[in-house]
Nucleic acid binder design. Structure first.
Length: 289
DNA sequence: AAGAGCTACAACCGCAGCATA
DNA sequence: CTATGCTGCGGTTGTAGCTCT
């Protein structure tokens, strides 16, 4: 019995991510974490991407704590010595390098360090010419020992959401708009939902896991779980759908939601694209009907 | 200037393991 | 106990940009 594919490959976009997609994903994850499930996230965020792809993009590229760019000699040495100890456990190796992902380390290994490692091990097997001076980045055993005593890196400081706009100037307006719309809508929904159940245990864990992966943080989600629209339980979201039939926003995905009852009837992107009046109308319906 | 080769890195794929119903 | 869904992981591929001839 084969596994069902994680998504319909014919219906999802593949290949490089655009700046706009990055901005949407980043904004969404910073607010709501993975919204309970990476698989469901693209639909909720309005992205035509596989959930797995979204997760990878966030973990390997968009995460606020990530460092990109050249590896230092110290990092080289640590990777080489750890590879010698544990082999290709890239996630373990990456966990010892703050700001680096397993994909980063793996790529770096395959393109550069592997050759160096081969050369070194070849030298060790042959009757030995003296090792090169340690200043050129060769393996320094003492390095890995000193790393053992190193305290875990401090949790990275989450970036202000405003930083996103500086990176993607053309999305400025869109994001600002979403800020305003969500601030208003969330305030109203929070009032409405205080009497309903909060996020399920699994949702909370999922959000927390996202926010703390590799000791990273997700500024809004973990702190304000009760305010997270997508973190709500099925009851909450069906409440949203049922209470607001007829709204153009809720029509966005059709009356009986193609993605199942657990999902809201409109996406993050729909809200971004909606006019202020439309969102206000939805909020009004939520409050008074 | 053009094309071949190389490098770096983003992204995809499929499997394993865990959690849950 | 089992089936299913989801996440995490490691291997691999694709491709843009750079360097060399």
């Amino acid at each position: 019995m084969g596994r069902s594919p994680c998504c319909d490959k014919a219906r999802v976009k593949r290949g490089p991510w655009s700046q706009e997609e990055d901005a949407i994903l980043k904004s969404f994850v910073e607010r709501f974490g993975n919204a309970g499930s990476w698989i469901a996230l693209p639909q909720k965020a309005g992205l035509k991407r596989c959930g797995k792809s979204c997760r990878l993009r966030w973990l390997n590229y968009l995460g606020p704590e990530l460092r990109h760019g050249g590896f230092t000699d110290e990092e080289d040495n640590l990777i080489l010595s750890l590879y010698g100890e544990i082999g290709s456990k890239w996630s373990v190796i990456a966990s010892r390098l703050p700001g680096r992902t397993d994909n980063d380390v793996k790529n770096y290994w395959n393109t550069k360090l592997k050759k160096r490692y081969m050369a070194i091990t070849r030298e060790e097997r042959q009757p030995s010419p003296p090792p090169p001076p340690s200043g050129d980045g060769s393996i320094a055993v003492a390095d890995s020992q000193s790393q053992d005593d190193e305290p875990p890196p401090p949790p990275p400081t989450p970036p202000a959401l405003a930083n996103l706009g500086t990176a993607v100037a053309e999305d400025d307006e869109l994001l600002l708009k979403s800020e305003q719309l969500y601030a208003e809508l969330m305030g109203l929904i929070e009032q409405q939902s205080t009497s309903t159940t909060g996020p399920s245990t699994r949702d909370r864990e999922s959000l927390t896991a996202t926010s703390s992966s590799s000791s990273g943080t997700s500024p809004t989600v973990s702190r304000s779980g009760s305010c997270s629209m997508w973190g709500m339980d099925v009851q909450d979201t069906t409440l949203l759908s049922e209470s607001s039939t007829g709204s153009s926003l809720f029509d966005a995905y059709g009356g009986d939601d193609a993605f199942g009852a657990a999902l809201p009837a409109y996406s993050f992107l729909d809200l971004l694209a909606a006019s202020y009046d439309e969102v206000a109308a939805v909020a009004h319906e939520l409050l008074y009907y």
